[in-house]
Structures are given as C-alpha cells and as structure tokens.
Amino acid sequence: MGKITKIMLGLNIVAGIIGIVFGMGVKGDLKKANTAKEEAEASAAQIENGTSSLKSDKTKLQEELGLVKGEIESLSNRLVAASSNLGDAQKQETEAVAALKVAQTEAAKLQSKLAEVTGLAQEHTKLKTTLADYQALGTVEEVRDWKKKATRPKPTKPGENGPNKPKPPKPQPTAGAEIGKIVSFDKKFGFYVINRGTDHGVKNGDEFKVVRAGNLVGKIKIADAQPSVSIAEPIKELTRQQLQPGDILRK
C-alpha cells in the first residue's frame, strides 16, 4: 500500500472512532435529558398538588380567621355589656348602702321612741299606784287630820283590852329585813308614803333605814300608819339627800 493510502485509512479509522464515541455521548445525553424531563414533570405535578393544598389551607385559615374575628367581636360586646352591668351594680350597691344607713337611723329613732314609750308606760303604772295610795289615804284634809291625830295619845275604851277581847298578833318587822318601799313624796307637805301599814306590823313611831343600791341614804319615822299604807317623815339629821320613790326600807 502506498503511503497516502495508509494515511487515508488511518484517518478513516480515527473518524470512525470519533463518530462512535460522539454517538455514544449523544445517546447518554438524550437519556439524561429524558430522565430530567420526567423528574421535572413529577416535580411540577408535586408543586401543583402542593399549590392546591396551600390554597385549601389558605381557605381554611381564612375561615378560621373569620371565626376568630367573630369571637373577638362577641367578646368585645360582652366586655362592654359587663362594664355596663358593673357600673349598674356599683350604683345599686351605693344606693343600697345609703338605704341601709337611712334604715339604721330610722331604727335608732324607733328604738328611742320605744324606750320613751316604755318609760311612759312604767311612769303611768307608778302614777296609778301612787294615785291608788293617795286615794287609800283620803283627801289632803284627811291626811292633815291623820298627822294631827298621830301626835295625840289615843284613848283606850273601857274593856277594849280586857281578857275577853285579846288582840290578834300582827307580824313584827325583824332587824335588817326589808320592810317595804317609798311609793311617793308630797312636795307640798313634805311627807312620804310607803307601801306598808298596820297589817304588816308597821305602827306609829317606827323608824326605818332608807337604802338605795345597797347604800344607806337616810332614815324615816312613821307619822300615821294605816292598814295598807303609812305616812312617814324624814329624820333630817340622818337624811342628807332627797329620798326617792323606789328606795328600800329596812328595820
């Protein structure tokens, strides 16, 4: 073979090898391209699915946001109503406190009036008792006559104390015992009326201690003893203060 022929043959062989190599590279690239295309299409499908899911999630979130806004608005309205109710409650509480104070004041006034009425009732009872005692004593003139008679010796009728007419024994006050009480005082004539008389063993000339709250405040002397009540006069040197109805008499 000639030298040129050998060269041409060598070039053809090289070209064939290059073609084979190039063809193999193109086929590999096409295969890679197809694979990339498939992966891209799969990714696109996933992205599309993800986009749909995101749209669905967005819709749900918007709905939930709307519900939350509704709850916030409802709570705001309830807060406003509660604030209004609180104001009304505070106003009612203030009015109730004021009404309570008025009621307490009225109750105190009524209590005072009740005490006053009770005192008047007790005073009325005392006055009725005093009136009964005075009525038992008689008129003022009769009282004066009793006082005069008390200073005179009483005559004894013949045979009054004879053996055929013994006097029935009368109770005698014992030393230290409570005899009775002063029921009234006559300012005009200066004598006291006590609720004990001859039926209780009290007689003219008897002297009794006057005690108030356990303390000795004076002494009286019986001027005229009647069956149920007696007239007494204070022993001035032993009486340093005004005696009062209710003072206790002791032997």
Rank of each mutant, 00 (worst) to 15 (best):
A108R: 05
L216N: 06
A81T: 15
R78P: 00
L11H: 12
V68P: 04
E64D: 14
T130C: 03
A103D: 11
G246W: 05
K6P: 00
A40H: 08
T125I: 12
P158I: 11
Q241W: 07
I179C: 02
S112G: 06
K181P: 00
A177D: 10
G138N: 05
I13P: 01
E73Q: 09
T129C: 01
I248M: 02
L100W: 03
L243G: 04
K203Y: 04
P227Q: 07
A150F: 05
S76W: 07
D133M: 11
A232K: 01
K6R: 10
K154H: 07
K31E: 12
Q226G: 03
A177S: 14
W146Q: 14
I13K: 08
A136D: 09
A115F: 10
A96G: 04
L61H: 09
L137S: 04
K37Q: 14
S76F: 04
E178Y: 01
K32W: 04
K188W: 10
G159E: 10
I182M: 01
R144V: 15
A98H: 04
Q92P: 02
Q135D: 15
P155D: 14
A121L: 11
F189I: 13
K60Y: 11
V97Y: 02
E106G: 07
Y192I: 02
T51L: 05
T151W: 09
P234F: 08
S76G: 10
E93T: 04
P227I: 03
T51S: 08
P169K: 11
N49I: 04
K113P: 00
M1Y: 13
K157W: 14
P169G: 09
I248C: 03
D199P: 01
S112P: 03
A213V: 11
I179P: 00
E233N: 03
I248N: 07
N164F: 14
K113N: 12
G70N: 10
M1C: 10
G25N: 03
K126C: 02
S56F: 07
V117F: 13
S43I: 14
L67Q: 15
Q104D: 11
S228P: 03
G2N: 15
K181A: 03
G119V: 03
L238C: 07
N164M: 14
